[in-house]
Amino acid sequence: MAKQVMKRRAADNQYLHKDFHGALSAGLDYLAEHYGRQAVRDYLRLFALTFYAPLREQLQRRGLVALKEHFEEIYRIEGGHIGIDFSENRMIISVEACPAVMHMREHGYEVSPLFNETTKTVNEAICEGSEFTAELVEYDAETGRSVQRFVRRESTTESVKNT
């Protein structure tokens, strides 16, 4: 039997391993089962505060446009369709279907009942200590379809009225 050899350089492929969503979902389930549901939120908050520190700094410095660029980029990479209603004081992101949830559904991975926290808690943590608040207004657990709202704190009332 002949020996088979495969050689690859990093540049030979695009970095996009969507099965990682399933691994993250498994991690959330493990945390909830062994440490309680609040541990899931605590972990995601800490992760977001740490990992998105540069984005949070951009949010402070440049406002919502920094978040707009971030979300446009990650949904583009993941092949998700989103609509963004943007102004300086308010941004509403409408996600047709979450690419992570859809990948897991299509490939037979368990979707954690707390998977919405990867949007809700993470968005809230990104905005923590900033002029803006984050709210997960709608979320469909089956598809991950969602409406995410970011509003400048002093204009919260006006923004909600206009939504």
Binding site: H21, I74, I77, T118
Partner: peptide, 10 residues
């Protein structure tokens, strides 16, 4: 959503 490209740090 945390992108799968951000999974490793997560």
């Amino acid at each position: 959503m945390i992108s799968c490209t951000e999974f490793i740090p997560a």
